[in-house]
Design a protein around this nucleic acid. Structure first.
Length: 275
DNA sequence: CCTTGAACCTGCGGGC
DNA sequence: TGCCCGCAGGTTCAAG
């Protein structure tokens, strides 16, 4: 999936097209994605206007005129895009939301790890999906002190730890490697071994990496594209991700990027500049 | 509580 | 050319 920058890119691209639009039809081309669509999904959406579109963690939130929130998670391979009315669908076009002014919003997702839900507006912060989420990395509340509190009692690797959505949201497999590289921290180190100074650097690195990626319109890998059909460019800026065997730009002699597996996910780092 | 591993699903690229 | 294997942006759940 899209990590935080990709979801933010999707939200920003959709905003001008969907805010104020009226939902005229909901076509579900299968009954489930990762989970079944809620029974009342069609009934709650149809006839409503989309009041706003926002992001929380990696979730897309669309507030409707009936005070319900339509929640979409893109999973690993989900895409939410707008286009003109068409009757011909692509493989994996699972949901088609018809808007006024002859616009359709299409949800396409080959692996179907994504899902949609609806909830009352005032239920948002207590809802199962959101109650346990940690800090938004780009908010002021995400500080080294806040991070240190969690790191202290964790023995698992720092890379795994910053991907834990209970601690900080939005940092996925790519930006975890990239942020640790920028902060010069070895991803294999136990979380509790990270010093306060390093935590300060790490928090700054996470914020910087995510912001830069948003600026570049996210990363394009395999099937991720921005909703207008374009691509993000951040993948051209990867310093370590997917670069095993290549020289690290730290420029030190024999500094080569390595790949290791941590909890089933690939981690990329430079053992020379990351300690 | 924390940690780890498996599960969900399809497609693609590399190696033989 | 074609097949098989491993791997891919995330999250959740169970078991230790």
């Amino acid at each position: 999936m899209p990590e935080l920058p990709e979801v933010e890119t999707v939200v920003r691209a959709l905003r001008p097209a969907v805010v104020g639009a009226r939902i005229e039809s909901v076509l579900l081309r299968r009954k489930d994605l990762r989970f079944p669509f809620p029974k009342s999904f069609k009934k709650i959406l149809e006839g409503q206007r989309i009041v706003s579109i926002d992001r929380r963690a990696k979730y897309i939130l669309m507030t409707l005129s009936n005070d319900y929130i339509w929640v979409t998670h893109l999973g690993m391979t989900g895409m939410l895009a707008v286009r003109g009315i068409e009757t011909k669908y692509a493989t994996h076009d699972h949901a088609v939301i018809g808007l006024d002014h002859n616009i359709q919003m299409i949800y396409n997702d080959p692996r179907r790890f994504g899902y949609m839900d609806v909830m009352a507006k005032d239920e948002l912060n207590t809802h199962k999906l959101f109650a346990h989420l940690g800090a938004e990395p780009l908010n002021k509340s995400f500080t080294a002190d806040a991070l240190m509190m969690f790191l202290a009692r964790r023995s698992s690797p720092i890379k795994t730890t910053i991907m834990d959505q209970k601690i900080v949201v939005g940092v996925g497999n790519i930006y975890a490697s990239e942020s640790l590289h920028m902060a010069k921290i070895d991803p294999r180190r136990p979380a509790h071994s990270v010093t306060r100074t390093e935590a300060v650097n790490l928090v700054a690195a996470i914020k910087h990496t995510l912001k830069q990626a948003i600026k570049a319109g996210g990363s394009t890998i395999q099937n991720f594209a921005t909703p207008d059909g374009g691509s993000g460019y951040f993948q051209h800026d990867f310093k370590v991700y997917d670069r095993a065997g290549l020289r690290c730009d730290c420029g030190k002699k024999h500094a080569v990027i390595e790949m290791v597996t941590q909890q089933g996910r690939s981690t990329y780092f430079c053992a020379t500049c990351q300690r």
